[in-house]
Design a protein around this nucleic acid. Structure first.
Lengths: 213, 213
DNA sequence: CAATTTGCATTGCAAGCGCTATGCAAATGG
DNA sequence: CCATTTGCATAGCGCTTGCAATGCAAATTG
């Protein structure tokens, strides 16, 4: 009989505050990403977020303060994820062409996903609300991460700083454009791959003559 | 004395209903574009629109029914404007390179402006609200206009239909991406021009070997 | 000219939104 | 074990939003 009692109490798992906090925050942030992707920013109300997260407003309030607090947390999380994704690229001993491939494909994993969409829509909304730091801080941090990875992956390429910057921006524009098309509900995987190939070709052409191979 | 009376009544200008309608609609549509560009979609409330237009809700209600009606009218207007802008391209007797130049620059006039931003944000919101026809109709009409102009301008280019379609899409992606960056408040004219040059180069490279010159 | 139609202004309302405040539950630390 | 802190649920509120309804002004028509 005590064996049966023991088994029952093991089911009520005691969790630390840190664990509970992490899980609740995770649920809320994921709910935002899911909601924006599904019903757009306008319909992603505080009520919708907590409904999707399976918590109540009290929990969100406790952890994030208000709706903007939630949205800012989503940006931070997304940015961190983006940077880690790019940092993971293992280009050791590969050709220039292969490196470009890896770089673009990995970046597209980010731009093509629900996470980027939520980031984009949040930033767009912030830009519309006031021209204050939230968006420019993220933009700047993202650019820095982008450049840092670029410098690492193409360290052997002798190219003017100005030109490198332009190519970085151009790549971001293409990826953002592709993502935008996707957001508007018109997506075709093969089309995306073909377009990615075009930007890869542009990069290859620009960088190959300056590469030590 | 009758001369003075005559002069006075000339100041109260009688306008036809058609004139009044056209002006009121123009004001409201322009107000939407202005508002979205200035404060974003979320803050572009019905109240904000009529305030900027200098009319009252009754006028908007009469002409457009509801807020969605206004937004759809903005899309129609923008699409028409886009098509006319592209139709205006005079490429007679110019080189391939020059034609690409004209095409991209004219298109950027559209994508880089407040009008496209409002279109984009409206479509994005519609996509988030329901996956119904409004956005796919415009997307499709816009693609058709784009292809029609492309075919006219590059009529001498022998290129596979599939490849032409890809290049068209790619161009739209770049332009959309540039526009997005602008929407997020980070714009630099020279950077934009440099990026446009890159896409022009890509087009030129792809099309020149198939051109009769 | 008068009746009718169209254009526009005003008022008020139902619903939704973000979030303050309060209180109970769960975990922590002494 | 108990006091304290942290996590979360609930209730309610003020404000905003979109828009239905009504009535007056301006243009049109016969």
């Amino acid at each position: 009989m005590t064996q049966a009692v023991r088994k029952h109490s093991d089911r009520v798992q005691r969790r630390s505050h840190a664990e509970r906090t992490a899980e609740t925050r995770r649920k809320i942030i994921d709910a935002v990403v899911d909601s924006i992707s599904d019903v757009g920013f306008q319909n992603t109300t505080a009520a919708e977020i907590v409904r999707r997260a399976g918590v109540t407003w009290g929990a969100a309030q406790h952890h994030f303060g208000d709706k903007d607090g939630i949205l800012i947390a989503v940006l931070e999380d997304s940015f961190g994820h983006f940077a880690r994704r790019l940092d993971d690229i293992n280009q050791k001993g590969t050709s220039l062409e292969k490196r470009i491939d890896l770089f673009i494909d990995r970046a597209w994993e980010h731009f093509g996903g629900a996470e980027y969409r939520s980031t984009f829509e949040i930033l767009l909304n912030f830009a519309g609300s006031d021209q204050s730091q939230p968006e420019s801080v993220w933009q700047s941090e993202m650019s820095q991460a982008w450049q840092r990875i670029w410098t690492r992956i193409f360290s052997d390429v002798q190219i003017k700083r100005q030109r490198a910057r332009l190519l970085q921006q151009y790549t971001v524009s293409v990826l953002t454009g592709l993502a935008s098309t996707q957001m508007l509900g018109k997506a075709n995987t093969q089309d995306n791959l073909d377009q990615l190939k075009l930007v890869k070709d542009t990069l290859y052409r620009e960088l190959r003559d300056q590469s030590k191979k």
